[in-house]
């Protein structure tokens, strides 16, 4: 499931062409999950989160094609949050009229909080993608990745994992080291991909 890797700048360039379906699909795949988990994290229901993600992406592409968003002038994150936030406030107003809600968290936190949650979800998305890519890597070998997941992620003991997979405990430690090292490379590549290199971005 390794997808083609275009940088965010390349994606934005491609988006200007309404007929470029693959670019739209990739942009959608990259930002929809973040928008969705960001909304969930702010306490919205899944249905609401789906709507917010959909509306925000659609609106963004409209704004972008009409020239309202200039990647050289501002962060993509800020622009997307701006659109999403407005929609959340809207939704919240209509919710206020039906007060019997369970566990509805105040969805409009301070701007710093919105940014922080976004960064957290963005990182989580990158980490998930990195894990997916790691699982696809044939160079490492399936048992190495298995050992890493069971030992380092599931928190089982090295001896136990070694027994299950049929390797030595030392190999379990080595697997953790190799996978972490490779993960760092993948994560840093994905982070570079999502950066906008123009002067107004950071």
């Amino acid at each position: 499931m390794i997808t083609a890797t275009r940088t965010t700048s390349q994606l934005l360039e491609g988006l200007l062409d309404p007929g470029n379906r693959p670019v739209w699909a990739e942009f959608d795949a990259r930002y929809r999950p973040i928008l969705r988990s960001w909304s969930l994290r702010l306490g919205l229901s899944e249905a609401d989160a789906d709507d917010i993600a959909q509306e925000t992406l659609t609106r963004f592409v409209q704004d972008y094609r009409s020239g309202k968003y200039d990647p050289a002038k501002g962060r993509l994150r800020a622009w997307l949050i701006g659109i999403a936030r407005y929609r959340i406030i809207d939704r919240r107003r209509s919710l206020a009229r039906s007060p019997a809600r369970v566990s509805a968290i105040d969805p409009v936190a301070g701007e710093q909080e919105l940014d922080r949650v976004w960064d957290q979800e963005h990182r989580a998305a990158i980490l998930r993608e990195a894990m997916d890519r790691l699982r696809e890597e044939t160079a490492l070998g399936q048992s190495t990745i298995d050992a890493f997941v069971r030992f380092a992620l599931d928190g089982r003991s090295a001896a136990e994992v070694a027994r299950e997979i049929g390797i030595s405990a030392d190999s379990v430690y080595a697997a953790k080291k190799r996978c972490l090292c490779r993960l760092r490379e993948i994560v840093s590549m994905l982070e570079d991909r999502d950066e906008l290199p123009s002067p107004g971005s950071d």
Partner: peptide
């Protein structure tokens, strides 16, 4: 890194 990874995987 592992802490963040676990969290991300769990959220998924």
């Amino acid at each position: 890194l592992l802490h963040d990874l676990r969290r991300a995987e769990h959220d998924r």
